[in-house]
Every structure is written in C-alpha cells, then in structure tokens.
C-alpha cells in the first residue's frame, strides 16, 4: 500500500517535473523565436507602429507649426475634411487616377511581357528596353515628362501644332492635367510591372504548352486557357501593388503640377503633404492619413476576398 502510494507520488512528481521541463523548453524556444524576430519587431515598431499610433493620436488634435499638440478637438478634424470640398475633390481625383493608371499599366505590361516572352532573336534587347523605365527615378522621369509637356518648347505641343491643331495646356488645363500625370505614371510603372509579369510567364511549365500543342490548340486558346490562369497569382500581386502605389503617388505630382490646376491633381498623399508641411496643420493632415490607411486596407481586403478566388495557385 505504502509502496504503491510512493510509486504514484513519484510518478506524479515525475510528471510534474516533466511538465515543468516541457514548459521551460517551450519558454526557451519562444524566447529564441522572439530573439530572431526582435530586429524586425524593433524596426517595424520604431518606423511603422509608433508613427501609426502617433498619427492616430495627432488626428484628434490641432497643432502648432512644429507639430506639438495644442487643442484637443475630438472628431472635428475628420468632420472638417469630409465637408471640405478640397479633400472631397482629392478623393475623387485619387479614385480617377487609380482607374486611369492601374488597368492600362497592367494591360500594356502584360502585352509587352507576352511578346517579349516569345523565343525570337533579339528578344533580350527588347526585354531590356521594356524594363528600362524601372531604372529611372521618379524625379528624373517627371522632369523628363515636364519638358515634353512644356507649353512653349514641349515636343507634344510641337507635334500638335505640326498637324495644325491647337496647343494643349497639358498641366494647366483641368481637363488634361490628371490624364497627363496618369500617362507619366503609366510610363514609369510599366518597367516594374513588365519585369514581374515576364518572370511569371517564364516560370510556367513548358510541358503544359507541349501537351496543348499535341492536342492541336491554337495560340489564343493557349493564351486564354494556360497562360492567363497560370499567371493569375502574378497578375494578382501586380494589380494589388499597382493599386497601392497609385494611392500613394507623390513624386510626379510634386514635380509636374503641385496639385494644380484647381486641385484637379491634388491626390491624397500630396494633399497630406501640403496640409502638414505647407499649412502646418498636422492634425488634419494626420486625419487624412488615417483615412488613406483605412481606404488602402479596405481595397486590399476586398481584393483578397473577391480577387483571390479567381487566382489559380499551383
């Protein structure tokens, strides 16, 4: 009896020790894991999470010129921006801008990637050319386009005049300015999008095409039934990234139009910049930033919900 109880007790204590050892083990591996994560946690914390929280905090205050909070106003900043015609205009412009740039960028890049993927002599040269705009900084590209759009000596107006048409105020006419900026952006984004899509195309297994060939499938049938479905993860990535980029456009606006004419090209990020660093209203700038954050979050979530269904992962 006593022997038995001792055995049970020792068994219990063994189990306890075992439990403890297991707990310690788990703790250890948790710490080890955390240590591996620490660099990115610290970096994200300092450069992303802290600014994010700070932005949300600032959006409930008015500030002085150095960004120190002065008066708590609650939701007033949000109410102000949603009744301000300038902010509503910039929301509208941003959505139009996304609409103008994203489909066209993806379509042109896809077309270029498909023709550059053909195994012909000299494709390497064209691949380099098509992706070359990736190597040009936003500032350099914008200055280049600024000269093309120049009302006095710009090439575009020279061409129009040659054909006997009236010169267009590309960057000063509210009907054209957003289009002009969109064209610039499309040109700039094609390089990157093209490269990613080309990479996607090249990773499609050639046996798929070979079996299709044996079945006697035509070029466009293969394109529709093999290429596009197999490319869909890449396409999905490209569309998501281009949309986010379009929402965050800044450089080309700053150089080409400064948000003008009549705020027609005053996209959200530029409007935030102006509110914070020209008007020194850090509070309402932060409120706009929070709105932009929520917008992009929603857009991306919606894409994952609806877009991803059509994506075919191997």
């Amino acid at each position: 009896m006593s022997m038995n109880s001792v055995a049970i007790r020792s068994h219990e204590s063994m189990e306890l020790i075992f439990e403890q050892a297991k707990k310690r083990q788990r703790m250890k591996s948790w710490i080890k894991g955390m240590l591996f994560l620490l660099p990115s946690i610290v970096l994200f914390g300092v450069f992303l999470f802290y600014p994010l929280l700070r932005t949300i905090y600032l959006s409930f205050f008015l500030t002085d010129a150095s960004g120190e909070t002065t008066v708590f106003v609650g939701w007033q900043n949000y109410m102000n921006i949603f009744t301000s015609p300038i902010f509503l205009q910039s929301m509208k412009s941003t959505f139009l801008f996304v609409l103008y740039t994203v489909p066209i960028t993806v379509f042109i890049s896809l077309f270029l990637a498909i023709i550059a993927n053909e195994k012909l002599k000299g494709t390497g040269f064209f691949r380099t050319i098509f992706s070359s705009s990736m190597g040009i900084s936003v500032a350099a590209a914008s200055v280049f386009w600024l000269y093309l759009f120049n009302p006095t000596m710009g090439v575009l107006n020279r061409i129009l005049e040659f054909f006997g048409m009236d010169a267009i105020g590309w960057l000063t006419n509210p009907d054209w300015a957003l289009l002009a900026v969109s064209v610039t952006t499309i040109w700039m984004n094609i390089g990157f999008t093209f490269l990613i899509l080309l990479g996607g195309l090249q990773s499609i297994d050639s046996y798929l095409y070979e079996s299709a060939d044996i079945d006697g499938a035509g070029y466009f049938y293969k394109l529709r039934r093999i290429t596009i479905p197999m490319l869909s993860p890449t396409l999905f990535f490209v569309v998501t990234v281009t949309i986010i980029n379009a929402f965050q456009t800044f450089g080309q606006i700053d150089i080409l139009t400064q948000g003008g004419p009549q705020n027609e090209t005053n996209l959200i990020v530029y409007s935030i910049y102006r509110e914070a660093f020209v008007n020194y209203q850090f509070g309402s700038a932060s409120a706009q930033a929070v709105v932009l954050f929520i917008l992009i979050l929603l857009m991306t979530a919606l894409q994952f919900k609806f877009g991803e269904r059509k994506v075919h992962y191997q």
Binding site: P151, T152, T257, G260, P261
Partner: peptide, 18 residues
Amino acid sequence: ANYGTNGDNMVAGFLAGD
C-alpha cells in the same frame, strides 16, 4: 496666356515671344 502656377514656364514663354 495661362501658365498655371508655373513661373518658370511663364518666363520661358516670355523669352520665346509667346
């Protein structure tokens, strides 16, 4: 002549006789 907010373009237009 409308040069929008761009002063450099305006001066360039003046110098070019526009």
